[in-house]
Deep mutational scan, measured.
Amino acid sequence: ELIWEQYTVTLQKDSKRGFGIAVSGGRDNPHFENGETSIVISDVLPGGPADGLLQENDRVVMVNGTPMEDVLHSFAVQQLRKSGKVAAIVVKRPRK
């Protein structure tokens, strides 16, 4: 059984690379294997702001206090874009 651990990460936006993450998932883009609608970190740019803080497959729980459960992919992207220079991101990942 999976035990999820929650992490809060504060990312500083890089002028060229943004937050250095890509997200997939969302209500309109469920996971191809299990139908899960979570917003998921799909890519972490090496050397970017999120490197060492976020991991691929982290589930995004909140962005700047806005819940990311059962939202559209575009909504999640929009929340990240409009967060200015700093984003507080809450993620969960299975305990190893």
Rank of each mutant, 00 (worst) to 15 (best):
V61P: 00
H31M: 15
E56N: 06
P30C: 05
R93A: 02
P30E: 05
T8P: 07
E56S: 11
R95Y: 13
K16G: 13
G52Q: 06
I41C: 04
Q12W: 05
I89M: 06
S42D: 15
H31Y: 06
R17G: 10
A88S: 11
S74C: 12
S42E: 07
V91F: 07
L80I: 14
R27D: 04
D51I: 05
R17I: 12
N57K: 14
P49V: 05
V86L: 13
K85N: 10
G25H: 00
Q78F: 09
G25P: 00
R17Q: 15
T10M: 10
Q12C: 10
E69M: 15
G26Q: 05
R17C: 15
A76N: 01
V91S: 00
V9A: 06
I89W: 02
V71I: 04
P94T: 11
R81I: 10
S74R: 11
L54I: 14
P46M: 08
G20S: 00
R95V: 10
R93M: 01
N29M: 14
D28S: 04
F19I: 04
S83G: 10
E33Y: 06
T10F: 10
D43M: 08
P94M: 11
F32Y: 13
A76G: 04
D28P: 03
V9R: 03
G18L: 06
W4E: 07
L80F: 10
V71T: 05
A22R: 10
E33I: 09
K96F: 09
T10P: 05
V91Q: 02
G47Q: 08
I89V: 12
S15T: 15
E69Y: 05
T10K: 08
L54P: 02
R81W: 13
L11H: 00
F75I: 05
L11K: 03
L54G: 04
P49C: 03
I41A: 01
A87V: 11
L80N: 02
K85Y: 10
F75T: 11
H31R: 11
K82D: 12
R93G: 03
Q78M: 07
Q79R: 09
E36Q: 06
V63I: 15
Q55W: 12
F19P: 01
L72G: 14
E5I: 09
R95A: 11
L2H: 09
W4R: 02
A22S: 15
R81F: 12
M68H: 01
T8N: 03
A88H: 10
S83H: 09
A50C: 05
V77C: 13
I41F: 04
I39C: 04
Q79P: 04
M68W: 10
R93N: 03
S38H: 10
G47E: 12
I3D: 08
V77F: 03
V60M: 06
G65Y: 04
L45N: 07
R17Y: 11
L80S: 01
Q78Y: 13
Q79V: 14
R95T: 08
G52F: 00
W4V: 04
V77A: 07
E5P: 04
V40Q: 11
I3Y: 13
V9I: 12
E36K: 03
Q6M: 14
N34W: 06
T37R: 14
E1A: 12
S83N: 07
P49L: 04
K85I: 08
G26K: 01
V60N: 01
N34I: 06
G35F: 05
F19A: 03
E5R: 07
P67S: 13
N64E: 03
G84Y: 07
V40K: 07
S74L: 08
L80P: 02
V44I: 08
W4L: 12
G35Q: 10
D70T: 05
G48C: 04
N57W: 15
G65D: 06
V91R: 01
Q6G: 03
G35H: 07
A88L: 12
V61Q: 08
N57S: 09
S83R: 06
R17T: 14
N29K: 15
S74P: 05
S42F: 04
V90W: 05
E56G: 07
L45D: 15
V90Q: 09
N29R: 11
A76F: 13
K96C: 12
E69P: 02
E69W: 07
A50Y: 00
G18I: 06
R27S: 14
N29H: 15
W4G: 05
A22Y: 06
G52A: 06
R95W: 06
A76M: 05
I41H: 03
D58M: 02
N29P: 03
G18Q: 11
V86G: 08
R93V: 03
Q78P: 01
S83W: 04
A76C: 11
H73I: 11
Q12N: 15
T66F: 09
G47C: 09
N29I: 15
T66Q: 13
G20A: 03
K92A: 08
Y7Q: 12
A88W: 05
Q79N: 08
K92Q: 13
E5V: 08
D51E: 15
G52S: 06
V77E: 15
N34P: 06
D43A: 07
K13R: 14
N34S: 15
G52M: 05
R93W: 02
P94E: 10
Q79C: 14
L80R: 01
